[in-house]
Amino acid sequence: MSNDVPHPYSIEVEPLTKPEGHFGWTLRRSGKLIERSDRVYGSEEKAREAALAAAERDTKPMPGMGRR
Protein backbone atom coordinates (compact mmCIF):
# COMPACT_ATOMS: atom_id res chain seq x y z
CA MET A 1 0.00 0.00 0.00
CA SER A 2 1.29 3.41 -0.93
CA ASN A 3 1.55 6.34 1.48
CA ASP A 4 0.31 8.78 -1.17
CA VAL A 5 -3.36 9.68 -1.30
CA PRO A 6 -4.66 9.04 -4.83
CA HIS A 7 -6.10 12.03 -6.70
CA PRO A 8 -8.91 13.31 -6.22
CA TYR A 9 -9.08 11.96 -2.65
CA SER A 10 -8.16 13.75 0.55
CA ILE A 11 -7.76 12.30 4.01
CA GLU A 12 -8.21 14.12 7.29
CA VAL A 13 -6.87 12.42 10.43
CA GLU A 14 -7.89 14.17 13.64
CA PRO A 15 -7.56 13.50 17.35
CA LEU A 16 -10.80 12.55 19.09
CA THR A 17 -12.00 14.25 22.26
CA LYS A 18 -13.43 10.95 23.54
CA PRO A 19 -11.64 8.71 24.10
CA GLU A 20 -8.79 11.12 24.58
CA GLY A 21 -5.53 10.19 22.88
CA HIS A 22 -7.22 8.34 20.00
CA PHE A 23 -7.74 9.28 16.35
CA GLY A 24 -10.36 9.08 13.64
CA TRP A 25 -10.32 9.80 9.90
CA THR A 26 -12.47 11.23 7.12
CA LEU A 27 -12.16 10.37 3.42
CA ARG A 28 -13.28 12.87 0.76
CA ARG A 29 -13.37 12.65 -3.03
CA SER A 30 -13.26 16.06 -4.72
CA GLY A 31 -14.31 17.59 -1.40
CA LYS A 32 -17.40 15.37 -0.98
CA LEU A 33 -17.59 13.12 2.09
CA ILE A 34 -17.18 9.49 1.04
CA GLU A 35 -16.49 7.66 4.29
CA ARG A 36 -15.75 8.35 7.95
CA SER A 37 -14.13 5.99 10.43
CA ASP A 38 -16.49 4.27 12.81
CA ARG A 39 -13.61 2.90 14.88
CA VAL A 40 -11.05 4.65 17.04
CA TYR A 41 -7.34 4.22 16.44
CA GLY A 42 -4.59 4.37 19.04
CA SER A 43 -2.21 6.31 16.82
CA GLU A 44 -2.37 8.82 14.00
CA GLU A 45 -0.37 6.44 11.81
CA LYS A 46 -2.87 3.57 12.25
CA ALA A 47 -5.78 5.90 11.44
CA ARG A 48 -4.02 7.13 8.30
CA GLU A 49 -3.31 3.55 7.15
CA ALA A 50 -7.00 2.67 7.56
CA ALA A 51 -8.04 5.78 5.60
CA LEU A 52 -5.63 4.92 2.77
CA ALA A 53 -7.08 1.40 2.62
CA ALA A 54 -10.59 2.91 2.38
CA ALA A 55 -9.44 5.16 -0.50
CA GLU A 56 -7.98 2.17 -2.32
CA ARG A 57 -11.24 0.21 -1.83
CA ASP A 58 -13.21 3.14 -3.22
CA THR A 59 -11.09 3.31 -6.40
CA LYS A 60 -11.84 -0.32 -7.32
CA PRO A 61 -15.26 -0.94 -8.89
CA MET A 62 -17.38 -3.57 -7.18
CA PRO A 63 -18.38 -6.54 -9.37
CA GLY A 64 -21.73 -5.92 -11.06
CA MET A 65 -21.85 -2.26 -10.04
CA GLY A 66 -20.38 -0.77 -13.23
CA ARG A 67 -18.12 2.24 -13.28
CA ARG A 68 -18.65 5.27 -11.02
Rank of each mutant, 00 (worst) to 15 (best):
Y41S: 01
S43W: 10
S2D: 14
A51F: 03
E44H: 07
D38F: 07
R48K: 14
H7K: 09
R36Q: 13
P15H: 09
R36C: 02
L52F: 02
E35C: 01
D38P: 00
E14K: 10
G64M: 05
E49L: 12
H22N: 10
L16W: 01
A51L: 03
E35Y: 03
E14S: 14
R57V: 02
M65E: 15
A50Q: 03
P61G: 02
V40P: 00
R67K: 13
P63G: 05
D58P: 01
F23G: 08
V40I: 12
A50R: 06
L16K: 10
E20Y: 09
P63M: 07
G31F: 01
T17V: 13
T59L: 15
K18Q: 14
T17Q: 15
A54S: 14
P15I: 06
R57Q: 13
I11F: 11
K32G: 12
R67G: 12
M62W: 11
R29D: 00
A47N: 10
G64Y: 08
G66Q: 05
R57W: 09
S43P: 01
Y41I: 08
T26P: 00
R57P: 04
P6I: 03
Y9K: 00
H22D: 11
E44Y: 06
S10L: 06
H7D: 15
L52C: 10
V5L: 04
E14G: 04
E35I: 00
G42I: 02
F23P: 01
R39N: 14
G42W: 12
P8T: 02
R28H: 03
N3I: 06
S10W: 01
R39I: 06
A50N: 06
E20K: 14
G64W: 13
I34G: 11
A53F: 08
L33G: 11
S2T: 13
V5N: 02
M65H: 14
Y41M: 06
E44C: 08
L33E: 03
R67I: 13
P6W: 05
M1S: 15
A55V: 04
G66A: 04
Y9H: 04
L52A: 02
V13H: 06
G64P: 11
R29H: 08
G24F: 02
R57T: 13
K18I: 12
P8V: 04
E35D: 11
A50L: 07
G64F: 10
R29I: 00
I34P: 03
E49K: 07
E44V: 01
I34F: 07
A54Y: 05
T17F: 12
L27R: 00
P19L: 04
M1I: 09
S30L: 10
E49R: 13
E56L: 11
S37D: 13
P6S: 08
M65D: 11
A51N: 08
M65W: 14
D58N: 08
S10E: 15
H7M: 08
S30M: 14
R68L: 07
E12L: 06
R67D: 13
L33M: 13
G24P: 08
E14I: 08
Y41G: 07
G64D: 07
E45Q: 12
S37L: 04
E12P: 00
V40F: 11
P15C: 05
M62F: 10
A54P: 09
S43A: 08
R68S: 15
